[in-house]
Amino acid sequence: MPQPLDYRKETPSQTAGPYVHIGLAPGASGFDIYSNELGRDIAGPDAPGERIRVEGLVHDGTGAPVKDVLIEVWQADSNGIYPHPEDPRFAKVATGFRGWGRVITDFDTGLWSFTTVKPGAVRGRNGRMQAPHLSLWIVARGINLGLNTRIYFADEEKANANDPVLNMIEQQHRRATLLASREMRDGKPVYRFDIRLQGENETVFFDL
């Protein structure tokens, strides 16, 4: 017998279930228990950059909106710096910038939204720049293991065309499933990003 490898196995995932809201977003689901609900303010009041709203629906394979999803977002600041000690430029991250948020969908309509600052481009592997993007993690009843995807911005055409991740998607028409479209509403920028869990135009999900 060779020597044993003594790695542990990752704990298996289980669905977040229908009541994930009381655990991770009690205030947003109308349950007042914590003095500080986490994940409500991604950028903080002082971070520089363009303030944007991002919104959308999550559709199931029948086309119906999913009304019990919880989404977490992780992003760099407007200079492309992550608020994490392993980012080499961490010391220069925007003041008060958390980079992380969580939202739940409206129980009646399924619409979700958050406000933040638009991230800057971040360095990818081997020195290639990645287009500005938000990383998403999606959990819900019926999802056995959280789904990872990214939101890119449709108006960043040049950066998107050179993005190493978008370019890895073999079927070119599927790249569009990761692009949020931009519109102005009451003078403020709103990005729309619909997620399709299954079926026509299924969103590209990642194995990270």
């Binding site: 392993e86 980012d87 971040v122 990818g124 999802i143 991740v165 299954q198 999900f205």
Partner: peptide, 21 residues
């Protein structure tokens, strides 16, 4: 109805994946 049918895209990790809140 909630499970993707397409294969996941395997991603080599970048700063976006090895950092977190």
């Amino acid at each position: 109805p909630r499970s993707p049918r397409q294969a996941l895209l395997s991603l080599e990790q970048s700063m976006s994946e090895i950092t977190g809140p």
